[in-house]
Design a binder for these strands. Structure first.
Lengths: 213, 213
DNA sequence: ATGGTTTCTCGACATCGTGTCAAAAACAAA
DNA sequence: TTTGTTTTTGACACGATGTCGAGAAACCAT
């Protein structure tokens, strides 16, 4: 995967070029994975959708899991960028509201809603060989969670400097992230978007130190 | 599944009885599913472990998913009973602390930790045919979540009557449940039990209206 | 006890998905 | 054109799910 990235960056195509676009396939694959789950998507499906032979996918990406991970990393980068952009303005309450809105909108997108790819990926992690979870996949998912947590913490710290928040930004950010992960789970359980929004609003009230009703 | 239950309850075994114990297989199967994930467990594994032929499992339970669901329901019943028993005594803070402790202990059990079966099950839900999630499985998982939520809500209501809580029990219970689901996700991401406990303690502080540090 | 009926068991089979491999095809460079 | 390398392509092996039918086993009735 890292090798492939280097090859792309350095344009080191000395010989026969690929007959399909690497990024197109990544997008198509992620869309399928997101709609039908990693488990429910076969490489044949992706190959058909992308107009590529199944063997070519193995040649280009290595395995189904490797393909998913690369597709996921592309998604994660885009998603984090969108969050950063949206969290740049307004009062702290406004920013947190936007954060929850974007989060919920993300895993309520599609019909039927596709859920949160990160949470789904994390919970599908299996024991690799004998002991321990699949480390590579775990790190990829955990990385996005960490970066979003840092983003929220920064937002809270800035709010604290402006007198809009008087708690511990690190702990509060962890709490908020935990709530968003929990919302991703409840979304699967009930599919009731109004309920999700209610919980989000209540969480903001708690964090900003107003009594929740 | 419902039929099988009726058969058990009514003891309607007119003819040749089964050669293996229904509940034993359910327990063995759930242990495997929990350790290796539904995806990572084959019916051959379970059949070997239980000393039963694979075909007999199909005959008795119908399919892999049906077997899992029945095994899960057995687990869910036991788990809820344990929670109810543990939440019967002490101050509201003590009860909530116990609740989070049991929750974390549950998905930190085993080595490596097996995670939360309910959350894993919910996030693995796939679209069934064309549209919509697998309804039957969704309801089974959501049912346990609902019942735990009700349990927490009752605990909060009782606390409110004793003057230990002055918020809205329904909303607060939803919030607490959301946090526990989020903890189940973070457990997969980081595997840091101390962090989980910190978030739990902070959540209790927020709900009981003390400033979290 | 014995026969008949029902159910369970067990092995064979079909199907699908993953992953591997080797040969063919296609392209760049000499 | 020739050489060398990579991609493509189809065939293959393997494992898992799920179905089916024949045979074995157990129970009821006579």
């Amino acid at each position: 995967m890292f090798l492939t990235l280097c090859q792309i960056l350095l344009e080191e195509q000395h010989l026969r070029p690929r007959e399909f676009d690497h990024d197109d396939v990544l997008r198509i694959a992620f869309d399928q994975f997101w709609r039908k789950g990693v488990r429910g998507t076969s490489l044949s499906d992706i190959a058909r959708d992308a107009g590529v032979q199944r063997g070519s996918l193995y040649n280009a990406f290595g395995s189904k899991e490797a393909l998913f991970l690369q597709a996921y990393e592309r998604y994660a980068g885009d998603y984090l960028l969108g969050l950063q952009k949206a969290l740049g303005t307004g009062s702290l309450r406004k920013r947190l509201t936007t954060f929850f809105e974007l989060t919920i909108a993300n895993f309520r997108s599609g019909s039927p809603p596709r859920g949160c790819p990160t949470t789904r990926g994390l919970m599908e992690l299996g024991a690799a060989e004998g002991e321990g979870l699949d480390e590579e996949a775990r790190q990829v998912f955990a990385s996005l969670v960490s970066r979003i947590t840092a983003l929220v913490q920064d937002t809270l710290s800035a709010g604290a400097r402006r007198g809009e928040f008087n708690g511990n930004p690190a702990v509060a950010a962890l709490h908020i992230i935990t709530v968003t992960r929990g919302l991703a789970v409840l979304e699967r359980a009930y599919g009731d978007e109004a309920q999700l929004r209610k919980i989000a609003a209540h969480t903001i009230d708690l964090v900003l130190d107003k009594k929740g009703g």
